[in-house]
Each structure stands twice: as C-alpha cells, then as structure tokens.
C-alpha cells in the first residue's frame, strides 16, 4: 500500500505521545484494581490533574512543578474516594461515578481564569548522542520525559506486583481481603495507598494532555479518555504488559487513522474512525480469550466492601 505523504518516523513519534495519557491512567487503575478497589473516577481525576497541572505550570513557569501538582491534586481527590469507600464504606461504583462528575465540575470552576492561556513549553528530552541517531533518534530518544516515565512505570508496576513483598500483599488484599486481614496485613492502608497512587498517575495523564499534547486548558478536555483507560485495564486482563499493548494499540490506531485520512488513502472514513476501538477490543479479547487465565487475573475481591470488624 502506498502510504503517500505519511512519514513513519513522525507517525511513531506521534503515537508514543498520544498513547501516554491513557497508559498512565490505565497503569494507575491497574494497581488500584489489583488491590481490590474499583475506582470509576479515572476521568474525574484526569481532568483535575489536567487543570491543576496547567494552573501550577502557568503560575510557576515550570512544567515540572505542573506535573507534580497534577499528581498531588489528583491523588488528593482519589483519597477522598478512598475515605468515602474504605472508611465510610460507601458503594464503590456510585462513589466512583460521583467522583467523575465532581472532577469535571470542580475542574471547570478551578480553570475559569485559565482559558486561552498558553502554558510554558514542556521541552522534549534530548538524550545526548542517541537523539542524533538517524531515524530512530527522533522517534525513540527525543520524546517528552513523560513518555519515558510512563514506560518506566510499566516496568516498575510489573516488577512490583510480581516480585516484591509489598506487591504480593497488595495482590493478596485484592484477592481476599478477609484472608489478608486475618494474616495481619492492613487492608485499609494498602488500599488507600493504591488509590492515591492510581490518582497520581491519572493526574499525570491529565497533565500530559493539558501541558504537552493539546497544550492548553479547555473544559472537559479529557473527553472520555479516563473511560478508555478503565476499559483497557479490563481488556488487558489486569496485566501490565497487556495494558501497555492496549494503550499503544488504541493510541497508535487513533493517530494512524488520522494520518491515513490526511494522506488521502482510499479507505472509508467510517471504518477508520471506529478502528481504534474495534482493533483494540479485538486484539485484547483474543489474547485474553483463555477464560481460566483471565479469571485468575481478575482480583477476586474487586469492588467488594471490606469492614474489619466482621
């Protein structure tokens, strides 16, 4: 197939960046769900991260401070969810949905004075020597720092859940909170920590949108990416590498279809438009089609309320 004016190097560079917000949010939610908590508020945490990061970056002039503020603000919001669901034992689904609505509302309130402002530029990370390599240099070694951070996080989360003692405890809490409690592990503490971590990553994902990809603050700018992240965690059957694959697949096909349109490739636009959803779902369904393994991966206590006095 003639790809016309599409430059594969630019395409890959674009897909890495476009996938990053979803990957970050999905990685966070993966850890949260592995601890047995279903937080449907990803969209709300992302957008609060987007606005907080934007505000902090504009006020301080430093994108780095912006990202830190985004992670912190979204983590605080997540902890609100944590206190409601873990301490006050509210319903997780309802509280999570509420968190999304709350996040969307408060973000537009917070961002009132920040519409139409340009944030300080977030420079690409030029790795010495490597970024000057032909072809692969601009693709792999000249991305924004968040792209590398998100990849490092995938590695970190995978290693943490698989090989560390604390990761094992987190999974135990997610599989059977009664058993973990009986063994003397703090279900509450573990879950609150996971929830805060998930919030921080969702916030970073949001700030990636408002400071790097778009970059500006607009109300409602996450436009459903939090929900995509949630779906990718499920389709990725709670495994870090599959979540990475899902996020890159979704982001990649999204960018690819826009490029195919721009290059005037004669494929029906309707097909191109739904392709990101279709292909991501298909591939992840196929690789997770082994029912037994999928069940093993789904945390057993997911979404169930735990009360220690029981």
């Amino acid at each position: 197939m003639d790809l016309g004016s599409i430059n594969p190097v630019l395409l890959i560079a674009a897909l890495l960046l476009a996938s990053t917000p979803i990957l970050l949010a999905a990685m966070g939610e993966l850890v949260v769900e592995k601890s047995g908590v279903l937080n449907l508020g990803v969209e709300g945490m992302m957008i609060v991260g987007a606005v907080s990061g934007f505000m902090a970056a504009v006020e301080s002039g430093s994108p780095t401070l912006g990202f830190l503020a985004a992670a912190a603000a979204a983590a605080v919001l997540a902890l609100l969810f944590g206190v409601l669901t873990q301490v006050l034992l509210s319903n997780q689904v309802a509280t999570g949905l509420g968190l999304t609505l709350f996040g969307l509302g408060i973000s537009s309130l917070m961002g009132q004075g920040y519409v139409g402002i340009r944030p300080p530029a977030s420079p690409r990370l030029e790795l010495p020597v490597l970024s000057e390599l032909p072809v692969v240099g601009p693709v792999l070694f000249s991305q924004h720092a968040l792209v590398y951070l998100s990849l490092a996080l995938v590695l970190g989360v995978w290693w943490y859940l698989r090989s560390t003692r604390s990761g094992l405890i987190l999974r135990a809490v997610g599989e059977s909170h009664e058993a973990a409690h009986a063994l003397g592990y703090s279900v509450l503490g573990t879950r609150l920590a996971a929830i805060a971590f998930g919030g921080a990553l969702a916030g970073l994902g949001g700030a990636c949108l408002s400071l790097v990809i778009v970059p500006q603050w607009t109300e409602g700018m996450t436009a459903g990416r939090g929900w995509i992240a949630l779906a990718i965690v499920v389709f990725g059957s709670w495994r870090a590498w599959r979540v990475l694959l899902g996020a890159y697949l979704f982001g990649g096909v999204s960018v690819l279809q826009l490029n195919l349109q721009a290059a005037g490739i004669a494929i029906p636009v309707e097909l191109l438009s739904m392709s990101p959803y279709l292909i991501t779902i298909l591939v992840l369904v196929v690789i997770s089609s082994d029912k037994r393994r999928a069940q093993v991966n789904a945390p057993n206590s997911l979404g169930r309320t735990f009360h220690a006095s029981g």
Binding site: N7, L10, L11, A14, A18, L209, M221, V255, A262
Partner: peptide
C-alpha cells in the same frame, strides 16, 4: 481537544 490536536498534527505531518 486532544483528538482535534492530533488531527491538526497529522495534517501538519
């Protein structure tokens, strides 16, 4: 917004 931005970038690329 992110999709609009990506579309603009795809055109420019």
């Amino acid at each position: 917004p992110p999709k609009e931005a990506d579309a603009a970038k795809a055109l420019i690329d």
